[in-house]
Design a protein around this nucleic acid. Structure first.
Lengths: 231, 231
DNA sequence: CTATTGATCTCGCAA
DNA sequence: TTGCGAGGTCAATAG
């Protein structure tokens, strides 16, 4: 990893065109050749960047650029597209390189995938006698999060969100419409499950005969832990 | 801006829980107090981070952490939520600070707003004899990107996306439903225009009688340039 | 202030 | 490889 603090201007051409006027910024060159241009504020998103796979070459500035005070030009070209970045460097204030090695990576907990897995494993929390058919049940317009059967043997499509919004209700409605046209599945009822359900989404869902269930992530994890302890 | 290369482990607690095992990484502390943890690969997204507003404090490690080899702990606390980041530093390999000043910011060109402007100016690319009524035509549920008339004088609502997804078709459908209730406008047909249209979106649109058009940004720009050359 | 929507989205998973 | 949905989404804009 190479860290450069430099007075520079940057031009990007690719999916869009973008330009950064002359200022002092951090240029970060990673081991895979990718480049990030960061300012001293904003968020974690760089002002400009090039994603891997790409290659960086230091080239000589053109005459008019030399006249403007440019000393070096970094030309960063994406390997599989026409995306390219030109960094016009006027002055280098810091330049250092460091060996970091491969990162073991991030361990996450608490996102929707985990909710889905937990609910699938404990589908009976939706009702006594309920059973899982499968997760990510594929339909022509996309996968339903969970397909299961209620105590009476009726099919139930479950849509899971971390935050239950109107979009999620629309999505589930589309699935239900489609699945109810399939005589092998019909009738299919719907359950909208989320850690938090917005009032508008709840109203819309209820109006369409979709049951709303608020999920308690910690409680589900608790069930999971206590069941594991049985072994 | 402070740049630190250090052997460290990181724990995040907030909207989710995440952990980074011990490894050598870049710690980037910006002027607003925000912190980014970068590895030597991946893309522009940090492995872990804290967004402003937040405050960073160096605290003493606990006894068991000292036993593990921790020399310093950075505690980064978000100002308006319970989000916090703990960086357990084992060894500092580089540490430097730099004054960057305020950044003038990025200038962009080629996003959805430009597509809309270009298509409005060259509405005849949708069909001979077509004419623009207006951009951002206001309805009770929001603005339709473009309202125009076809050669026969029929009203056409155009929804523009950079990438055509199912959401965009749903949006256009809602506009069409509403507009077709207005006797002054009805009948209104729909055009779904995007640089790239997903198969599922195309299927849904076609099923609803909405025409799909793939936009070529460079071609539209080309038309624009060649027309400018006439003056 | 909240709500909506685009993004050079990025990232991960599954067909 | 490609497509699709989630994201600690972020960030800009409208209401």
């Amino acid at each position: 990893m190479r860290l450069v603090i430099a007075k520079c201007a940057v031009d990007y051409e690719g999916r869009l065109t973008a330009h950064l006027p002359l200022a002092t910024r951090l240029l970060l060159v990673k081991a895979d050749g990718s480049v990030l241009v960061h300012s001293d504020g904003g968020s974690y998103k760089p002002l400009n960047w090039m994603s891997p796979p790409c290659a960086m070459a230091e080239v000589s500035p053109e005459d008019h650029e030399v006249a403007d005070g440019v000393t070096t030009v970094w030309l960063v070209q994406h390997a599989k597209s026409e995306d390219r970045l030109r960094v016009l460097i006027h002055e280098v204030l810091h330049d250092s390189s460091h060996e970091l090695g491969v990162d073991p990576g991030l361990v996450k907990d608490g996102v929707e995938a985990h909710l889905q897995k937990l609910l699938a494993e404990h589908i009976h929390t939706l009702g006594d006698g309920w059973s899982l058919v499968r997760r990510e049940y594929m339909t022509a317009i996309g996968p339903v999060d969970i397909l299961c059967r209620d105590a009476a043997g009726g099919s139930v499509a479950v849509e899971i969100k971390r935050r239950g919004d109107i979009d999620g209700v629309e999505q589930l409605t589309r699935y239900l419409e489609l699945m109810n046209r399939d005589p092998h599945l019909s009738p299919v009822t719907g359950v909208f499950a989320a850690q938090e359900i917005k009032p508008q989404a709840r109203t819309l869902a209820t109006d369409r005969g979709i049951r709303c269930v608020t999920l308690d992530y910690d409680a589900l994890k608790g069930i999971d832990n206590s069941e594991h302890r049985l072994f």
